[in-house]
Amino acid sequence: MSYAVEFDHVSRHFGTVRAVDNVSIAIEEGGFFAMLGPSGSGKTTCLRLISGFERPTAGHVRIFGETSEDLPPNRRPVNTVFQDYALFPHLSVRDNVAYGLMVQGIDKRTRHARAEEMLALVKLDSYGDRKPAQLSGGQRQRVALARALVNHPRVLLLDEPLGALDLKLREAMQDELKALQRQLGITFVFVTHDQGEALSMADRVAVFNDGRIVQEGSPEDIYQRPRTRFVADFVGSANVLSPALSRRAGGPEAWHSLRAEAMEAIEGGSGRLSGTVTTVRYLGAVKRVTVDVGGDELTVAIPAGQDAPAEGATVGLNWTATAMHRMEGA
């Protein structure tokens, strides 16, 4: 298996701050890889280590097997879609897209033709003469994409590319990016703090916290089998059971995750745990019922068709033993 990007025990420290702390990853060629984490978790620094805007304090970053420490950004087979798009305000859309070709010394006619192809790819055929300021946010994003693709990079880096778009546009762009990645077969490395985005688009996800990778795996792994409490909390799908609570529920004394939709709440009945319903929220497809089980709160998702217990009711909570997923502490 050949890897597009490999991190070999990479650290990047800024003074006493360990932005990236001993990270090792291997990103497969042709994949769609997401780096997920809260702000300040080190994911953007990792992206910048690939593009060459940061250099590792320790360890090695390899791009297609080649150690890249001494390779400046302009010599790497990697291009970036920046978070704020970073379109050159003084150049037309066409010249923005053709920029990478211009600095290689490719003649004007050829580079403009290639730029038009790229604009067609992102469905902005007739926008070449405009200035970036005359475009909407979504259009700017496409120009940034076209510009980054014009050099035929082997890896495309995307830094929170959908962050500035509104919800509807963001969903449409998610599908388009995914389709584009399949069509071009380029490795995409994607940084985001939005777990929904990461899980729906990527085929591998690395979850970052405090400069380290806490879990790497397929979206399903991350969602179903969070390795730590942090992942469970951040991905946000599951209840986190403390060792004491797990014990009370009849499990081993360890941290566990328990997905909301794997539980049922029986009004007046008994179960592994019992408690009082504090709130019931109607969310369309499901109702979210929050139950106070002696100081801890658990969330139960009940499909819209079924009756939910009323607020204030006493309920028993039940689930199958396999629904409880054991995690590492803290």
Partner: peptide, 9 residues
């Protein structure tokens, strides 16, 4: 950075 990223020295 965008300029460097696109290959400009």
């Amino acid at each position: 950075e965008a300029s460097a990223d696109l290959g400009a020295n």
